[in-house]
Amino acid sequence: MEVRVSNVRKEFDGFAALKDVSLDIRSGELIALLGPSGSGKTTLLRLIAGLELPSQGKIFFGDMDASEKTVQERNIGFVFQHYALFRHMTILENISFGLKVRPRATRPPAGEIRRRAMELLDLVQLSGLEKRYPNQLSGGQRQRVALARALAIEPGVLLLDEPFGALDAQVRRELRRWLREMHDRTGHTTVFVTHDQEEALELSDRLCVMSQGAIEQVGTPDEVYDHPASPFVFGFIGESSELPVTVEKGELLLAGRPIGLAAPEARPGPARMYFRPHDVDLVEGDATLAGVVHTSRRVGGTRRVEVDLGPANHKVEIDLPFDHPAGERSQLTFRPRRWQLFPSA
């Protein structure tokens, strides 16, 4: 189902947690709401769910205005950060809860409820655990029960709040892949909240980057990673280094010296240049960024060095091949291969 968030504002005791947010969620897509804590991403998810009501603005499910509908009427599946499994019910009872509480007219017969719950248990690969209680399961298993429980009511939209937040790294990676496969099989429109950019990039069809109650950028992982729309997005998604430069006659200068990068379109004057540590070329020559290695650490398959760029004491991080001979106090000259300019703050 399509979900359209239209000019939504949400205040808590006069504090605006969301400021005029609009977002179109396409039917069947897996979209991530990504942002640091306090960015309003969970508030937006809860507004879509109907667990909160907007102070202003509307939320549409398809063509239906859902803004004033209760959470029950919206028919959403919500997976809570800490799962919120019912501790006094078995796994099977947890999964069938949503069907059992339906009014008599729409409630399937008991046998049918059981059959559907067992099917879902199978779908989340937990067959055989139906008689267990939530506290007898591992974190990853509980997460999958929570998902099965949400799917049992055949929701129009699946909403997940930090679905992997409470799991350790190994389980998290496994479940991430598994969730993607689940989504491809079932095709539910899915919105999930995360503060983990790696998770968002890997898992989602599109991601919506949020900061301070506003949406910074919406796009595919490639678009957001390669063409960040704002310094915030550049800094939040992936690694980044920043330098205060000046644009003069279509050239970039750092502390008055040309660095060999042309920017014919840019407005003359001070600007901020952003680049990724791994997007640099080591080059010889005068018009380059030149500096002294300050610190050097091994990060996975590369070596990340912090380079002190001399006069104004600017430090940036760049990645070198792990076997590069540069040690501390070595001289390096380089140029960003890809970079982006933003107006000075």
Partner: peptide, 8 residues
């Protein structure tokens, strides 16, 4: 909240 979201 979980119970409400499940339609109870």
């Amino acid at each position: 909240e979980a119970a409400l979201s499940l339609g109870a």
